[in-house]
Design a protein around this nucleic acid. Structure first.
Lengths: 209, 209
DNA sequence: CGACGGAGTTACTCGCGCGTAGGATGATGT
DNA sequence: ACATCATCCTACGCGCGAGTAACTCCGTCG
């Protein structure tokens, strides 16, 4: 078990772009499995069946390599949430689709969601900026719909949006941590119903009990 | 700005237990501000106005020092949530109180919530165990109430509980990141209303559209 | 008044992991 | 066949930060 799990054949020569993609793939596996700090550049290189300097011919440093991956997946999250919201004008279905988007994201290939939701580098400014921005954009898109639907103030709608994002994020990660004890679509429906009951016909005024 | 902000007077001698408390205080400041990895034992010692070996006379290593703090605040979170749930038998008020508990926790002294909600050491088993356990306990307590109230299945109630925990956590952190743009009790009420509308009179069956 | 011991200090060792210098190797154009 | 260039390798420098060894200082008790 101490031997390299599945290092690619060490001899293959690749054109620049293909190599880059492959390096990103290897880096993702390692960063996801170990987190940023525990991940060693040596290991990423080895995992790609290549030596370290090759890595540095494609990326200026460890941080930039990480940011490339983070960008990719943060944007992917925002994109599928946007698509979910644009997939219909029926708000109930919108909620359903949005929740499914989060569950899809978390269940997606190679547990890449960890980069966005469980990064161990949030204390570093550029990482924090990206993670926060992804969350904010999701919340903002949802807030827009809420504001239109309920006439709530922007601030309030934004807070509600972030609440729903948190609900989706955390419940989806929990669902996955239970190794899908509940079928995916069932979990999505349960959470979607919770969310929909929560916001549908939300009272228009802020200051009431 | 490069000089030490407020190192305690370097000469004071303290009895063992007082020193320990003080070291925990200094460590908390540094861990909260920098995260685990960026925090240096030298800096914690300096912040406490003491040299490094003193730190090692009280804690066997950096990790154990961190775990001591994490335990403390994880337990504090579970405790205030439990107290919120036990404060009344009116479920609507329970929701209100629970949300307030999360907001109180996040707004609490020295931003210690970061240790529990934003730890950059979740990839390390003992840390992950503690963070997950705190979340699970909160969700479990809420799930219990939900199950009693709605008759939902245990699995479903647990998922709902985790959804509400996520809603509270993420929205509270967002609220704080906006530097309290909304008054605290207003934010609490908005989220509490969202949560209460979501679960109150939750349908008893799972498999309906 | 001397020695005992708790409290603290300075000044190291040492391993780990990022990033790099300099050399080898194999395909391509002339 | 030979030069050329991109691609890849081995082997190292080097800083940083956790943890430690060996010493000092001062109150207290017999």
């Amino acid at each position: 078990m101490t031997a390299t799990p599945d290092a690619r054949p060490r001899g293959t020569r690749l054109p620049r772009l293909a190599r880059r993609r492959q390096l990103l793939g290897a880096a993702q596996e390692v960063f996801v499995a170990q987190g940023y700090h525990a991940a060693a550049m040596d290991e990423i290189a080895e995992r790609a069946g290549v030596s370290k300097p090759v890595l540095y011919q494609h990326f200026p440093g460890k941080l930039e390599l990480y940011l490339a991956l983070l960008d990719e997946h943060a944007e992917a999250l925002v994109k599928i949430v946007r698509e979910a919201l644009e997939s219909t004008t029926d708000n109930k279905l919108r909620v359903q689709a949005s929740m499914q988007a989060f569950y899809d994201f978390v269940a997606g290939d190679g547990e890449a969601y960890r980069l966005v939701f469980e990064s161990d580098l949030r204390n570093v400014a550029p990482v924090r900026a990206r993670v926060d921005r992804a969350n904010q954009q999701c919340a903002e898109m949802i807030a827009q719909v809420i504001a239109e639907d309920t006439g709530a103030a922007a601030e309030e709608a934004h807070l509600l949006g972030m609440g729903l994002v948190g609900m989706a994020e955390v419940s989806a990660r929990f669902w996955l941590s239970q190794h899908r004890a509940i079928p995916k679509d069932t979990a999505e429906k349960i959470i979607a119903r919770l969310a929909w009951r929560g916001i549908s016909g939300f009272p228009r005024t802020t200051d009431q009990t």
